[in-house]
Design a protein around this nucleic acid. Structure first.
Length: 1117
RNA sequence: GCAGAGGUAGCGAAGUGGUCAAACGCGCAAGACUCAAGAUCUUGUGGCUUAGUGCCUUCGGAGGUUCGAAUCCUCCUCUCUGCACCA
């Protein structure tokens, strides 16, 4: 066998790589006998600069696992491919005036050959390149499926634009307002019409399934934050804008304005100060429709703010009226409405005399806002009539349960709501609803203008201009700014009218884009209220066992006597005190007795404030502060201060909150006890959330709601080098999808790249296409898809990479999927790691997959940093290229180093000295096998082999490669101390193999084995072979060696002559622990072991007297 | 601001209630080999002390729980990562 110095890493790497490839040992196919295991690494973008050690680290982590699982007997699918669409190749093409395909394919060749030199055990037969039409065809196919299901859609919205990439970006690709590829480039907001995937329709499942995934907790947390699920309540607020509506209510057949909900509705509307006209229609029991219509037109006044409501037959009258009104009206509300005789009882007279023909075009012209109210409990008319109406003139169908059949209850709240202008808001804190003092609509809200009144227009526009002209990065510095819109909202719980502001601090596309602001219990609202001097109304008393009071008119000494501590004495002579709960009654009595006349004292209790007044005449009045006592107390306060009570007393709680001592109890964002909240007083936050929501649901003013931060995925890119979107724009047919048989829509190859813009836009052979529907000339969409679509399903294509009939054979995906272990970077936490889950769920829902999640286990490897501990980058000059490292140190040492000095998930610096350490170790192994002499495996070696096999197996399973390598080193030291058989030497090589595949193959062969160690089975640890006494002996030997070394050191230091011969005196039952040979090897001196009771022992200095259990006496000469 | 991860010997990094002055590697030191250097091997690597002992000080800082803490709890501090006015 060769000496170490003759061992050429390069030679053996090449030799085995060639053999593996020739024998195709890593090619796999489905098998009914073997259990599958799918190991997958996130595939790379083939960049022009080639692989660096960071890349190879990911693949090494995966390869070790794949080799390990393969040896464990699994049918391991371990493929590799290239995510080959993307901007760098396109930019290179623009610079060179060439085609990105050229750069891409060169890079792929380079990547692939470098990967091969690293000996990864991929099944190259399954390689995927996403830029190839036979791959991206299926991207387009999936797009069509999503389009069919309404999950791919086009909309105009504010989008993120990177001026460097010259394209829009997904929400996920914007990091801190900068582009994910250009850390220096600020993303701009543009209003564009773009394609989206409806990821939000899976928000709930994407969120809830996280629980089941064996993924690193931090990734799951990141996804949870990103999806941002929050539970709350949607509350409907009435809105009063400058455009004040007036109402005309038309009753139905055999009815009158005195029946059903009409009287109630009229009262409610008038209460709000609106004009209401409720004509009594003639001949209601035997109506002539045209007569009634004429009656309405003659007797009612219509204008552009008119809201027309028709109930039952009244809705038919309303429609007819709308054919004839001169000017368009504001809104039409149809309650139990119909338009065709087929839904009617044929016996009634009016249906025979009426012509039943409507001019729907005219109606549409006269009203644009139409609400069709359909009660699900309406037995008087079939449900489908709502759809019939909608087909005729559009409008919005609202399903609800009416108080009574045919919407004939006394108080039909939904009818009222639909007559009024309402706006829903989302809140997680319905418990604070009584504290609402204003509303805020997002300054970016599409409906904002509806709220701004004539009077406020100038200020509002000035403000909006400021907001839009502020750059994204300056926004944070800007703080919360806003302006009053001029409109108001009405609190559905107490009817209070509050102003609506517009502001930059509310997000337009979260919830409804408007919030209820509770400054007392939300710091953001507080900040805003302070700035614009809006009232702050506390409604939650912070829980506190102690009672707080701010007391005057009593002696300091007297307070102390009853055991109450004074927190602070103010300059004006007040005492801030906290009263323990058990002292409260004493305190009350004390106040009654000791407070000077003409004073009053308030203090908090667990439920709210309590007041004790002492009038000048000594009369004492006491009361608890609640809604009813609110006014009284305010007046009392005034009188005591010698002031004249105001007509509109200030809310006492707000007044109390101005006191900085009470403030901490009244102004806070946490939970508490409800005060100032009418019937809900006394409930705690959690109870109140529940009760208030129930109340709102009953009144049809709200519902439980869940909201997500997640937004739909913007997939359009204004770039060339991506998958073309299979959509055609036709002047006649609108947006038309390309038919399946015409896929793929291919990227042209004979196209010139000479500007930074997408060249497809002006490339006639591509854009000029006939409409798939009407065959007339249409225009092909020139945007391409975000390259993340490719990686969203590539793992499925690996299962059946060459299928040209289908996206994949489901039999194959059923066998291989899901991915058992997915290895990749943590930077994908909220990008790829969400997208591929979304795709999986979609493909499952169209029947292609039988599982919910693509990857059961996810492993995130750390980054490899440069030697200086900084991220590798060309500009820092610390990039370590893979091929150079392999050439210099050999592949196996490089692999071994990458996984050995830290657990694979932590970041670590590349270190040349570190790799050299690995080289040293491997050379030692090679040297050992070069001089290997087979023998019978010693007991100790056998025990250790099993012990270490067990540990190494467990460590590799858990990706603790670093600890596995340490065990390999330790086991190697034992090999050196013991004799072992050829078979056991082979076992060591097997344990080494996943880390050092080439060297282990070579040594395996040199050991006389036939075949590949790659295909050998993983050694099994037999725990019964682990000998505990050997462990004890080892411990004893180590201990004694330590002691001897220590003595020798001391002898040396004392300049004594260092001893050459060592005598040990052990207890008789321990003599066997001290193997003189092993100790001798370790110390490098002669060793004799005696039992203490051995009469023939050599012990001139009586050191045997020092012998203790576990500690032999030592004598050194 | 919120959330997550983390701070261990000169460095990287194990260790998550006693077996810990703390694996393993790198670095450093001494010794062996060599004419010498490198490579290799051996030993050492918190301090004091000692023929193998004993003691003290250490695991970001300060407290606490415990017979016992790097390890559990509380507060503080610093670093990294993610989200960023999400109502």
């Amino acid at each position: 066998m060769a000496e170490v110095k003759d061992m050429d890493f390069y030679q053996i790497e090449k030799k085995w790589q060639e053999r593996w490839e020739k024998k195709k040992i890593f090619q796999v196919s489905e098998s009914s006998k073997k259990k599958k295991y799918y190991v997958l690494e996130q595939f790379p973008y083939p960049s022009g600069s080639g692989l660096h050690v960071g890349h190879s680290f990911i693949y090494t982590v995966g390869d070790i696992y794949a080799r390990f699982k393969r040896m464990q007997g699994f049918n391991v699918l371990y493929p590799m491919g290239f995510d080959s669409f993307g901007l760098p190749a396109e930019n290179a093409a623009i610079q060179a005036q060439s085609h990105p395909k050229k750069f891409t394919e060169e890079a792929i060749r380079n990547f692939k050959s470098q990967m091969k030199t690293f000996g990864y055990s991929y099944d190259w037969n399954r390689m995927i390149e996403t830029h190839k039409p036979d791959f991206y065809k299926w991207d387009q196919w999936i797009f069509l499926k999503m389009f069919e299901k309404g999950l791919a859609y086009r909309k105009k919205s504010p989008v993120n634009w990177c001026p460097k990439c010259n394209t829009v970006l997904a929400n996920e690709q914007v990091q801190n307002g900068k582009c994910w590829r250009h850390e220096e480039t600020t993303v701009e907001i543009k209003q564009l019409e773009q394609w989206f995937f409806r990821t939000t329709s899976y928000a709930d499942e994407l969120y809830s399934n996280l629980e089941k995934l064996e993924w690193p907790e931090f990734i799951k947390t990141a996804q949870r934050n990103w999806i941002g699920k929050s539970h709350g309540t949607e509350i409907i607020f009435e809105i009063e804008t400058e455009r004040r509506p007036n109402f005309i209510l038309l009753h139905g057949y055999t009815s009158s304005p005195k029946e059903n909900f009409f009287p109630w509705l009229k009262k409610e509307l008038e209460k709000r100060g609106y004009t209401v006209q409720v004509p009594v229609l003639p001949n209601t029991n035997n109506p002539d429709v045209s007569e009634q219509v004429d009656f309405v037109l003659k007797n009612c006044k219509f204008d552009e703010q008119t809201v027309l409501l028709g109930h039952s037959l009244g809705s038919v009258i309303a429609l007819k009226v709308l054919e004839k009104v001169k000017k368009p009206i504001r809104k039409l509300v149809l309650a139990a409405g119909f338009s065709e005789p087929k839904f009617l009882d044929k016996k009634r007279s009016f249906e025979k005399t009426f012509d039943w023909k409507f001019d729907f075009e005219k109606i549409k012209k006269n009203v644009s806002k139409i609400k069709i109210l359909r009660a699900t409990n309406d037995s008087a008319a079939p449900q489908e009539r709502a759809e019939t109406l909608q087909q005729h003139f559009g409008g919005e169908i609202l399903d609800f349960t009416a108080e009574n059949n045919h919407i004939s209850g006394k108080e039909e709240h939904v009818v009222l709501q639909q007559c009024l202008e309402t706006f829903p808001i989302f809140t997680t804190r319905p418990d604070t609803i009584f504290g609402v003092t204003f509303m805020v609509i997002s300054a970016q809200h599409p409906q904002l203008m509806d709220f701004i009144t004539e009077k406020q227009k100038t200020v509002a526009q000035k403000f909006l201009k400021k907001i839009t002209s502020t750059k994204q990065e300056d926004m944070d510095k800007l703080g919360k700014e806003g302006v009053f819109t001029g409109s108001y909202a009405r609190n559905p719980l107490n009817g209070e009218k509050v102003p609506i502001y517009a502001s930059n601090f509310v997000i337009a596309d979260y919830g409804s884009g408007m919030i209820m602001a509770v400054p007392a219990h939300d710091p953001r609202d507080f900040e805003f209220a302070k700035k614009y001097d809006i009232p702050i109304k506390p409604v939650l008393l912070k829980k506190s066992d102690e009672s707080y009071s701010y007391v005057m008119g009593i002696n300091e000494e007297d307070i102390k006597k009853i055991g109450i501590t004074i927190i602070e004495k103010t300059k004006s002579g007040f005492f801030k005190i906290k009263i323990p709960p058990d002292k409260l009654e004493d305190y009350k009595a004390f106040i009654r007795k000791n407070m000077k006349a003409g004073f009053w004292n308030e203090f908090t209790t667990k439920k709210g404030f309590y007041f004790i007044f002492k009038h000048k005449d000594g009369k004492i009045e006491e009361m608890e502060l609640n809604e009813k006592t609110n006014d009284i107390i305010d007046k009392y306060g005034m009188i005591f201060n010698g002031e004249i009570p105001k007509n509109n007393p200030e809310n006492v709680y707000s007044w109390l909150a101005k006191n900085d001592f009470y403030k901490e109890l009244l102004i806070h964002p946490g939970p508490g006890i409800l005060i100032n909240s009418e019937d809900f007083n006394g409930l705690d936050t959690e109870e109140a959330k529940e009760h208030i929501t129930i109340y709102l649901v009953e009144k049809k003013l709200g519902r439980k709601a869940v909201n997500y931060k997640l937004k739909d995925w913007l997939i359009s890119r204004q770039r060339f080098w991506g998958t073309p979107i299979p959509i055609v724009y036709c002047d006649k047919c609108g947006i038309v999808s390309v038919s399946e048989k015409d896929l793929p829509v291919k990227l042209p190859e004979d196209i010139k790249f000479n500007s930074t813009k997408n060249p497809l836009v002006n490339y006639k052979p591509f854009i000029e296409i006939s409409c798939p529907k009407c065959k007339s000339l249409a225009r092909q969409e020139t945007d391409t898809m975000d390259t993340f679509v490719n990686s969203s399903w590539y793992f499925l294509r690996y299962c059946d990479p060459k299928n040209d009939k289908k996206i994949f054979d489901t039999k194959k995906t059923d066998y291989w999927m899901p991915i058992d272990i997915y290895i990749g970077g943590k930077e994908h936490a909220t990008m790829h790691d969400i997208y591929f889950r979304f795709y999986t769920k979609f493909l499952r829902d169209i029947g292609l997959l039988k599982f919910d999640e693509p990857a059961v286990k996810l492993f995130n490897q750390g980054f490899i940093l440069g030697e200086n501990n900084e991220k590798m980058s060309k500009s820092k000059g610390n990039v370590v290229l893979l091929n150079e490292a392999a050439k210099k140190y050999g592949v196996d040492p490089t692999r071994l180093f990458l996984v050995s000095n830290a657990s694979p998930e932590s970041d670590k610096a590349w270190s040349n000295a570190g790799v050299e350490g690995s080289v040293k170790f491997i050379k030692k192994i090679i040297d050992y096998f070069a001089h290997f002499k087979s023998g019978k495996t010693s007991k100790r070696a056998e025990s250790k082999m099993h012990k270490y096999t067990k540990e190494i197996t467990a460590y590799i399973s858990n990706f603790r490669y670093d600890l596995a390598v340490i065990r390999l080193r330790e086991l190697f030291d034992i090999l050196n101390e013991e004799t072992i058989s050829t078979k056991d030497a082979g076992i060591y090589l097997k344990l080494l193999h996943p880390f050092c595949p080439h060297v282990s193959e070579e040594l395996w062969e040199k050991l006389g084995n036939k075949g590949f160690i790659s295909l050998e089975s993983w050694p099994e640890a037999d725990e019964t072979k682990i000998d505990q006494t050997i462990e004890k002996q080892d411990e004893a030997v180590n201990q004694v060696v330590n002691d001897v070394m220590n003595i020798l050191k001391i002898m040396r230091e004392k300049q004594e002559k260092e001893g050459e011969q060592i005598y040990l005196y052990a207890l008789p039952n321990e003599v066997s622990f001290y193997n003189s040979e092993r100790i001798s090897i370790k110390i490098g001196k002669k060793v004799s072991v005696f039992a203490v009771n051995d009469k023939n022992k050599f012990d001139p200095e009586q050191k045997s007297g020092k012998t203790k259990p576990g500690k032999p006496g030592i004598y050194i000469v």
